[in-house]
Write a protein that binds this DNA or RNA. Structure first.
Length: 522
RNA sequence: GCCCCCAUAGUCUAGCGGCCUAGGACGUCACCCUUUCAAGGUGAAGAUCGCGGGUUCGAAUCCCGCUGGGGGUACCA
């Protein structure tokens, strides 16, 4: 029996082809610690769908009082992107997830980065075992040759080509001889050619998912570079790291049979599988893609989304609690999240819903908190300093009530508040002139308003409103007409927070100066 | 092509044989509130539960077929 990194390589226990119903129950009844993982590949920014899968794993672990592990699967040398790991970590933390074990926090099963585990020889040792037991073989056929075999087979009328290496029946000696010649090779799994492979899925419930082995092929386990492929590496690590449940995207369902066969080959007990539904694009045509959709998690912050809103929305992509509860705190999600309520059918990305939820979360924020979250956006728009001065902070805090229930994205704040933080150009005459009014009437109204506002005491929104209402009546104007004109004059825009509050926060001097400047335009 | 999975309004979903004249949310529309925009309130439209067969006294709920959608089909994960 080989021992690798302190873990038993191959157990001598019984082969569990399927975890029994009883075992599945035991593994989630709290008597056995639940251990799940999120294992992203550092090939770019973290996809929003990845966050959803991570969230489900995390909620599952927390719900059952188990452990959540982060593992980096960087066995693809070609697609590796420097810095991606940092982005993934930052994105996960941003939405509020933490992990009990991982490359950055350590843990009893370190290392948690596959390239490092590869260097330790972990995968190679496991492959040796498969080779020795006849579950794998070295294949010297080149990719080009396989391609030729495929076209030839198709030409012969074979409906689907399943590659099985001619070396399947070679002896270890034959393989060694070929290897000695220096011929490059891959190691492939010797997949049974008959019978069926079946497994149970927590999300799909009901019957076992069953696949005819003759529709499978001999997958590569070790690339010619010696680097393991996902199918081998993730499985060895999941076993060594003692995962009890594998919660992953449904795109893995088709390759699960290979994994079952591998577990069988190693004589390991199966973990429990739960394939969570994909998130489809808005139009339903395919799953969200990095190329076509705005799915970079790290972009949601700058787009003005609150992590709690994104997290809540994501929790509802493929999972629901009941027929009406949608807004849930982290603790509520943990308490309520169970796999049996995860949907088997794909969800669809719905930006409108996310936006609505974000608005709701913004409205739930305490004013001080919203002010704090708004500062970076205002700084980025260069409306305040970076970092902001104490005066700027205080002023922004004053502005919060004006936009609090009007924001759906924090990123909208600069546009809404620019007129308070910057001087404005005098507005165009046609903007100032309200319905059923003309230039003369508008000028007269603004002049009268300026006169009244000059004298108002104190400069308080209730007084301001009352003053202007009285004025409107005196001028024979509708409140909407007078307020509209002053609004444009004071803010440069037809849309603004309520005029009384706007004037109050603007201050008498600036308000009057702007109204007078506008009057001059007419 | 082959294999696998899925199927309730435009979208997300509740429903797990009778509580359903199918509930909630987003979106849409109308009205109310109102100084604009939001927010909030009220209400409406929108689903013959994809289609066709069964099982059953009874089916959105169970079974089969079809259709449709999605996923997979790499020395990527």
């Amino acid at each position: 029996m080989n021992t690798v990194s302190g873990s038993t390589l191959v157990g001598g226990g019984p082969i569990h082809v399927l975890a029994t119903v009883e075992e599945r129950a035991i593994m989630t009844d709290g008597t056995a610690p639940v251990r799940v993982r999120f294992a992203p590949s550092p090939t770019g920014f973290l996809h929003i769908g990845g966050v959803r899968t991570a969230l489900f794993n995390w909620l599952f672990a927390r719900h059952h009082g188990g452990q959540f592990i982060l593992r980096l699967e960087d066995t693809d040398e070609k697609r590796f992107v420097a810095g991606a790991a940092n982005d993934i970590v930052a994105s996960l933390r941003w939405v509020g997830l933490n992990w009990d074990e991982g490359h950055d926090v350590g843990g009893p099963h370190a290392p948690y980065i596959q390239s490092q585990r590869h260097e330790l020889g972990i995968y190679q040792a496991h492959v040796e075992y498969l080779l020795k037991t006849g579950w794998a073989y070295k294949s010297f056929v080149t990719p080009e040759a396989i391609e030729e075999m495929k076209t030839a087979a198709m030409a012969r009328g074979v409906k689907s080509f399943r590659f099985r290496g001619p070396e399947r029946d070679w002896s270890l000696e034959q393989m060694a001889a070929e290897e000695a010649k220096g011929t490059p090779y891959t190691v492939r799994l010797k997949v049974p050619t008959d019978g069926v492979t079946e497994f149970h899925d927590l999300v799909r419930g009901g019957e076992e998912i069953s696949i005819e082995n003759d529709t499978l092929y001999d997958i590569v386990l070790l690339k010619s570079s010696g680097m393991p492929v996902y199918h081998l590496a993730h499985l060895v690590d999941d076993h060594l790291m003692e995962m009890t449940h594998i919660i992953r995207g449904e795109e893995w369902v088709p390759s699960t049979p290979y994994h079952i066969i591998l577990y069988h080959a190693f004589g390991w007990r199966l973990p429990i599988f739960a394939h969570v539904p994909n998130i489809l694009r808005q139009d339903g045509r395919g799953k969200l893609s990095k190329r076509k959709d705005d799915v970079a998690t790290n972009r949601f912050w700058e787009r003005g989304y609150l992590p709690e809103a994104l997290r809540n929305y994501l929790a509802l992509q493929g999972w629901s609690y009941d027929d009406r509860t949608e807004m849930m705190t982290l603790d509520e999600l943990i308490e309520r999240f169970t796999i049996d309520r995860v949907q088997a059918s794909p969800a669809r990305w719905n930006p409108d819903k996310l936006l609505d939820m974000n608005g709701k979360y913004i409205r739930m924020l305490a004013p001080d908190e919203l002010a704090a979250r708004l500062l970076p956006f205002l700084s980025r728009a260069e409306l305040i300093g970076d970092p902001p001065t104490a005066d700027e902070r205080a002023y922004v805090r004053q502005l919060v009530p004006l936009v609090h229930e009007r924001l759906k994205e924090l990123s909208e704040a600069p546009d809404l508040l620019v007129c308070f933080l910057r001087e404005i150009e005098p507005p165009a005459a046609d903007l100032l002139i309200q319905k059923k009014m003309d230039a003369d009437g508008t000028r007269a109204a603004l002049e009268a308003a300026a006169a009244r506002l000059e004298a108002v005491e104190p400069w308080d929104r209730a007084i301001l409103e009352e003053t202007l209402r009285v004025l409107a009546e005196a001028l024979g104007l509708k409140t909407g007409q007078l307020f509209g004109t002053i609004r444009v004059a004071a803010t440069g825009s037809k849309v603004s927070p309520p005029l009384d509050e706007t004037l109050e926060v603007l201050g008498r001097a600036r308000a009057l100066q702007r109204i007078r400047a506008a009057t001059a335009v007419l």
